[in-house]
Simulated assay, not measured.
Amino acid sequence: MSIRVAVADDQELVRSGFSMILEAQPDIEVVAEAGDGAEAVAAVRLHAPDVILLDIRMPGMDGIEAARQVCAQSSCRVVMLTTFDLDEYVYEALYAGASGFLLKDVRRDDLVHAVRVVAAGDSLLAPSVTRRLVADVVRRRRTESDAPAVSPAERLSVLTAREEETLRLLARGLSNAEIAASFVVSDHTVKTHVSNVLSKLGLRDRVQAVICAYETGLVVPGS
């Protein structure tokens, strides 16, 4: 079964370039293109793609609001496109429900890999820049609200000790294989732990799990 993808970017050359790269893959089908956020939301409703690539900066409805609506209204997973690896809007994208982000100068193979990873239910957390973004968004939110961090004991009490440690390692950027090696268990066992963490905490994916770990103080930015 092909992975159904939509591409939204106000620059036609970027949009068509990404579409051509993805269409060349035997397991990926580009079902829609959009030039702004409103068109992107409409495309998701009409074509029900598995993944949508959303440019952050678009005229009219921007990518952040589009991501918020897409994540709230469908099961389509969102990958944000940005020109800068520290674009301030990426912070809002993570809270909107995006599963990760890509730089627009992403390599062909990395673009294809990202779509497959996100379609499979994972998130783009491997790059260290993403971990910096997650840590920074939590710092910003705490500064803006001037409120203390939620105690891990209060929010994470539903987790077992092993699940809490799994969340801690996720927040530090470890892959399932690396967590499995740390626990000396199988990858399947780690996948079960990750699934339990998401389910018990009511989280959409690994990105939200990492944000939760920082917000509760389970992991401290810079640690």
Rank of each mutant, 00 (worst) to 15 (best):
E154I: 14
V41F: 10
I52T: 01
L54F: 08
F101K: 02
V190Q: 05
G63F: 03
S123D: 05
A181T: 15
R139D: 15
A120D: 06
S223W: 13
L203P: 01
V207G: 04
D136R: 07
L167S: 00
R45N: 12
P59L: 06
L133H: 03
D110P: 08
V194H: 03
E154L: 15
G35F: 13
C76F: 04
V117T: 14
G217I: 00
D105P: 07
V210A: 15
A135P: 08
L201G: 07
V79Y: 01
L218E: 02
T160I: 01
Q73P: 01
P152G: 08
K200E: 03
R139F: 11
E12M: 15
V134T: 14
V220H: 11
P152E: 06
A213V: 10
R45M: 12
R204A: 07
V117D: 07
V138M: 11
T83P: 08
S16N: 14
T166R: 02
G173S: 11
R162M: 12
V30Y: 05
T143C: 14
S195H: 15
L198Q: 00
R204K: 12
M80G: 06
N196D: 13
V210C: 11
Q208N: 12
G35M: 15
V112S: 04
D27T: 03
V118C: 05
G121Y: 08
G60K: 03
V185M: 12
S175M: 10
V106R: 05
V207P: 00
P148D: 13
N196G: 08
A42L: 14
D27V: 03
H193S: 11
S145I: 10
I64R: 00
D36T: 13
P127C: 12
Y95F: 12
